[in-house]
Design a protein around this nucleic acid. Structure first.
Lengths: 161, 161
DNA sequence: GAAGATTGAAGACTCAATCTTT
DNA sequence: AAAGATTGAGTCTTCAATCTTC
């Protein structure tokens, strides 16, 4: 596989995921949806945490959180422990919306249909490999605390051998 | 793995590949680089073919080819068999540039360093799974026939291109 | 000083439409 | 009619800078 094919593959995977997620909420920018899922699945978080985990720039996450609050999908409050921090959270009373958007499994919802032709064993092997790769890259990113969602730092990390 | 994680993973893979490729030609837009590699590795191609293979919009590919010609990295000529077609190609005398940019292997150049900590067997299994996935998705794009087990999502995905 | 809100400029892309040429 | 060049509007994003608040 050439590097050009890796780029193509990465973009197709990301795109397939985006289509899945956007199907449930047409017209909402991907960044907002990803922040929403992050909050649903990982719990209340600060802007900086969300920037690190999503890979988006700080300004983008800040805007996404503002957008989600405008939609009344989430709420924000000050961190009592550190008054500078904004904590975004999914309100308890949004049970209906949460149930519509909660915890979509990539293997079942997205990859499954695409790999339908394969024998079960190959399908599971591929999904397993993607999981392993995901966990590995996550660990490499998270290793040292990154100064906000700094793309420069991320790049340097990825390039490191 | 959640859908959000799949999107994240796909974007990281694409980004890692882009960094590799941009390292050799700073300042050149990704679309131009991908068209360039496509021409280097798959040979002379029409605009429409390049658009299909790279996944970019026709207008984007057209502009990318024009850009590459401005850089004098490629040449264009009319298709003698079909006068409407523009054929882009890498001139034979660009041996030096080609050797700098030719055929970068994703497993070695990009994934290898990222997976350095893993035992050889796992590393090869992951790279192999990515190859298989790549070939499978490519075949789904190219084929006008939908895979039989295809679900609604799948159909939507394929229709979007 | 650090978190985050906000803003402005720039880049890269899509989409849709139009025009030219074969 | 089909290929492709070109253009304009719109979207999403980064980056860098600034301002406010703890």
């Amino acid at each position: 596989m050439r590097v050009k094919d890796l780029i193509w593959l990465g973009q197709r995977l990301a795109e397939a995921g985006q289509l899945d997620v956007q199907g449930l909420a047409p017209g909402v920018p991907t960044a907002e949806l990803l922040v929403m899922y992050e909050l649903l699945e990982e719990g209340p978080s600060s802007i900086t945490e969300l920037a690190e985990r999503t890979g988006y720039a700080q300004s983008r996450v800040s805007a996404a959180v503002a957008g989600l609050r405008d939609r009344e999908w989430i709420g924000t409050r000050r961190d009592p422990a550190d008054g500078r921090r904004t904590i975004a959270y999914v309100p308890a009373d949004s049970g209906r919306r949460a149930s519509r958007t909660r915890a979509r499994d990539a293997g079942k919802e997205v990859l499954g249909p695409l790999l339908a032709d394969l024998p079960r064993k190959r399908r599971e092997a591929i999904i397993g490999a993607l999981e392993e790769l995901h966990d590995l890259l996550r660990r490499q990113e998270g290793g040292d605390t990154l100064p906000q969602g700094s793309t420069e730092e991320n790049r340097r990390l990825l390039r490191r051998r």
